[in-house]
Design a protein around this nucleic acid. Structure first.
Lengths: 110, 110
DNA sequence: ACTTTATGTATCGCATAGCGACATATTGCT
DNA sequence: AGCAATATGTCGCTATGCGATACATAAAGT
């Protein structure tokens, strides 16, 4: 990622979207974002974990500890019904935002 | 605008893009962004003026005072050749960024 | 045996940038 | 005189990404 500031505000949408399909733990989310974006997007743990706590505190996601033999403890988060609504709203906001930027900056349908 | 954080990092691209076509002054840029985005994007003066100073300090834009009878003094900014290169680079970055977000968040070509 | 790498969660403190509120000044309309 | 629009400018608050650091376990490399 070239510009750190560009990412602000888009992290929530990313996390919520990934948790829509299935529950995941923090480290998994971090790797998944990097892989799926082809390295364009990366989220460091110092950003990611505090973000997950915020989202859980707001009731948008729900986490629980899973312990398995031979594995370190993991905290899996799943999307709540409230979170699903927020996600739908944030998707709309993102679309509007991206379209506005593209229009003004003279970019084709991105 | 719903999410203030979402805008961070995109302001430079916006300003640089608008100055590509013709020199403009701050107040004009502010009104233009709001109008062209259909109200989705707004930039307050407390964000805009410091941003213009930063861009000028970096040599990406060049400002000069214009005084006309019957008008308040205005500072018109024009894009420099360095700024034009930066703009091209930022357009690429934005495209990559927007595509990555859309792909992960499950959005069609935005 | 030792080192590195990967997995997994956690926190401190810094840097950045948008903006509400406020300030100042000129012009035009009522 | 009063108010809105135009035009530039600044203080202080807030949010958030992340470098650095820490801790713990397991697998792979040398």
């Amino acid at each position: 990622m070239l510009d750190r500031e560009l990412k602000k505000g888009s992290a929530e949408l990313l996390i919520l979207s990934l948790l829509e399909a299935q529950p995941r733990h923090g480290y998994d989310l971090s790797k998944l974002i990097e892989a799926r974006s082809g390295g364009v997007l990366t989220f460091r743990v110092a950003s990611l974990y505090p973000l997950l706590y915020r989202l859980e505190k707001r009731g948008w996601i729900q986490g629980r500890w899973i312990e398995k033999a031979g594995l370190r403890r993991r905290r899996y988060y799943k999307l709540t019904s409230v979170g699903a609504n927020v996600l739908a709203s944030q998707r709309d906001t993102w679309k509007e935002f991206a379209q506005a930027i593209s229009r003004i900056a003279g970019l084709e349908s991105v």
